[in-house]
Design a protein around this nucleic acid. Structure first.
Length: 422
RNA sequence: GGAGAAAUGGCAGAGUGGUCGAAUGCGGCAGUCUUGAAAACUGUUGAGGGUCACACCUCCGGGGGUUCGAAUCCCUCUUUCUCCGCCA
């Protein structure tokens, strides 16, 4: 969430920049007045407590010196103070809660470069690379290829669990495993330390990275234990640092992890969700960085270059988009989406999203570092997919299909052990 | 799942109702000494709110309670350790 002191000091700028995301200015006024009321109550309460602390000490002194009568006299005076502080505490808590809840409804301030816009049509293409293959004959979409070569079985998954939970078989499963290993190796080479993390997280972690309360309905909730299945490795990877004060020399922290991701995707059904395009369970390799605020945009660029390199090696045609104010994620300041072009589907498939959250997550997480003056400063967090599996797989199947079968990208052959799916 | 023990500052570890935000040691930082370093010595060293700066307030795993007053007593939750049971 946004930092109140920052809003207080930069009100005009905050209002102006949130307009890009169509946020109404009145919310900011509401935050500031709630904060003012909160601080007034805090001061009142502090004064009351100070007085009763003073009395308690005096009473202690009288008991020690044996002046019981005087002590009891003072005791009688503390009752009222106690009542007052109790009332004030309740008022303060409800005010503070109201403020926090309001802050939860305000998205992150977009970076200067974020274009205005309402939908994905307003995103800005900033880079494009790779050749769209010319396929001879009829190009098949991946769900038909999957059936033809018996490598992914959607019906079997639907039988075992439900729609959106595919079963990968034989060379399909092996290709999936190859991609995970290849991505993790690339990330490790680039200095990201591999982690294996829990696939279920508690409520505090959900709030820490901003999935809660905003996207409550998008996560699978295990009621008996009040845990959530992770919608992305970002949640456990980033929450490892919740409440930490790291030393400046620890920065940047660069980590990576593979996990399955679970998303309810409530309400998104239709033509564009066929096959691997949108699933309830899918695999993803994630990269996360904790950065010094001065370095976070340089870090974002590095992450973008890193993902580019992987796609270059896979020889997939792709483009990079700078998301507009209407399409950017709630907690992000600046997001680049990567899309692979699928010849068979004749459309772009999103395969990675790389974001800088600045201090929006760390303010919730209370993830800070000590600067040279010994002051605690909120760090910046970033994350990105490197990469999401299903659509990369779809892109490979569709772009690498030949009349003789599906070729395997050269860099993956050492991982798959075969160079063709027939 | 059953029985018991524990949770204190970066770490170790004292503190069992009153001037305790907390002894002491280690670590960190600054200084003295030294050509430099080490050693030794001296000082300093938790977080948040609040203030121009002080004052002041809150925090001893989380939440609640008793009391004029709680790190210290009570309830509850979580986590860790030991023993038993079960088990990939």
């Amino acid at each position: 969430m946004l930092q109140v002191p920052f809003i207080r000091d930069n009100k005009e700028e905050v209002v102006e920049r949130l307009k890009v995301r169509n946020v109404d200015a009145s919310v900011i006024d509401a935050v500031l007045s709630l904060d003012e009321e909160r601080r007034a109550l805090q001061t009142k309460l502090d004064n009351t407590l100070a007085e009763s602390n003073k009395l308690s000490k005096e009473i202690g002194g009288y008991f020690k010196s044996g002046d019981i009568e005087k002590a009891n006299e003072l005791k009688a005076k503390t009752g009222e103070l106690k009542e007052t502080s109790k009332t004030l505490t309740e008022e303060l808590n409800s005010k503070a809660d109201a403020l926090t809840n309001l802050l939860y409804t305000i998205p992150n301030i977009p970076h200067n470069s974020v274009p205005a816009g309402n939908s994905e049509d307003d995103n800005e293409e900033v880079f494009k690379e790779g050749e769209v293959p010319v396929l001879d004959g009829a190009a098949l979409p991946h769900w038909e290829l999957a059936k033809k070569y018996d490598i992914i079985d959607f019906d079997l998954g639907a039988k075992v669990t439900g729609a959106g939970f595919p079963v990968y078989k034989g060379k399909g499963a092996r290709l999936q495993r190859a991609l995970i290993a290849y991505f993790l190796d690339k990330n490790t080479e680039a200095g990201y330390v591999e982690h294996q993390v829990p696939h279920l997280v508690n409520e505090a972690s959900g709030f820490g990275t901003g999935q809660l309360p905003d996207k409550e309905g998008q996560m699978y909730h295990v009621q008996a234990d009040d845990l959530y299945l992770i919608p992305t490795a970002e949640v456990p990877l980033t929450n490892m640092f919740r409440g930490e004060i790291v030393s400046e020399s620890d920065l940047p922290i660069k980590i990576t992890g593979y996990t399955p991701c679970f998303r309810r995707e409530a309400g998104s059904y239709g033509a564009h969700v066929r096959g691997l395009n949108r699933l309830h369970q899918f695999d993803k390799v994630e990269i996360v960085r904790v950065e010094h605020p001065e370095n976070s945009y340089k870090a974002l660029d590095e992450m973008v270059e890193h993902v580019k390199e992987i796609l270059r090696e896979l020889k997939l045609p792709y483009r990079v988009l700078r998301l507009c104010g209407g399409d950017i994620g709630f907690t992000s300041s600046l997001t680049y989406d990567f899309e692979v072009y699928s010849t068979a589907q004749e459309r772009w498939l999103e395969i990675s999203s790389v974001s800088n959250f600045e201090a929006y997550q760390t303010n919730r997480l209370k993830l800070r570092f000590k600067d040279e003056n010994g002051k605690s400063v909120l760090a910046h967090t970033l994350n990105g997919s490197a990469l999401a599996l299903p659509r990369v797989l779809a892109g490979i199947l569709e772009n690498y299909q030949t009349p003789d079968g599906i070729k395997i990208p050269e860099v993956l052959v050492p991982y798959t052990g075969f160079d063709m799916i027939k």
